[in-house]
């Protein structure tokens, strides 16, 4: 994966395969604390302790459920490369929460890149699933909830090109501003959870 927005797309595709009807995505970047976190929470079927223990292993794959495979290991690798880590919390029947943490000004921290494209791709590909998205990139906040959008649209397809264009537009400003890392951050700063 070239950037974190592609990892995000991949991880969320996992949650849809787990039967989720609501996926919440939280992106928080605090450059002063040298920390970037991406959280994906779903209300899918969840995993038991045994599966949870094996889910990071790339060679653990259950083709029938498609809940595991290379998605989690690749994301964890991306975290480790940027001196971060990956937390996974899950319980059968109560969904899964995955949080990827990165040291944001680490030279090997992948850029977030086009989160807006990831979001519209998810919405277009899974119009029956609801997505809640909130990001705070050093104080620059974006929020979106497909449940609210669907209520307003009142039966019009949320994957309509005009609606998707509106959603992408939310991200235009941030994409221009976030041209990679801010200079002079704390190289040796600790990552705070």
């Amino acid at each position: 994966m070239e950037d974190l927005s592609l990892h995000l797309l991949d991880i969320v595709e996992n949650t849809t395969a787990a039967g989720a009807t609501l996926v919440e995505i939280y992106v928080r970047q605090d450059s002063e604390k040298n920390r970037l976190s991406i959280t994906v929470r779903d209300n899918g079927r969840g995993m038991d302790l045994d599966m949870l223990a094996r889910v990071r292993d790339p060679f653990t794959t259950t083709r029938t459920t498609r809940r595991v495979g290379l998605g989690i290991p690749l994301l964890e690798q991306a975290c480790h490369e940027a001196e971060g880590h990956l937390d996974i919390m899950s319980e059968p029947g109560s969904g899964t929460e995955v949080t990827a943490i990165f040291r944001v000004n680490h030279i090997d921290c992948k850029p977030l890149a086009d989160i807006g494209l990831t979001l519209v791709t998810l919405i277009a590909g899974n119009p029956d699933i609801d997505f809640k998205y909130e990001s705070n990139i050093d104080g620059d906040k974006i929020t979106m909830d497909t449940r609210e959008i669907k209520t307003e649209l009142d039966g019009i397809d949320i994957a309509d090109p005009e609606v998707l264009a509106l959603i992408r537009n939310l991200f235009q400003k941030r994409r221009v501003n976030s041209s990679r890392h801010t200079a002079g951050g704390q190289i040796n700063g600790e990552i705070e959870d």
Binding site: I142, E152, I156, V163, L166, L170
Partner: peptide, 14 residues
């Protein structure tokens, strides 16, 4: 805070 405008959605709906 960037958020979708309800009037934009209503315009599309119309």
């Amino acid at each position: 805070m960037a958020k979708l405008k309800i009037e934009d959605l209503r315009r599309i709906k119309e």
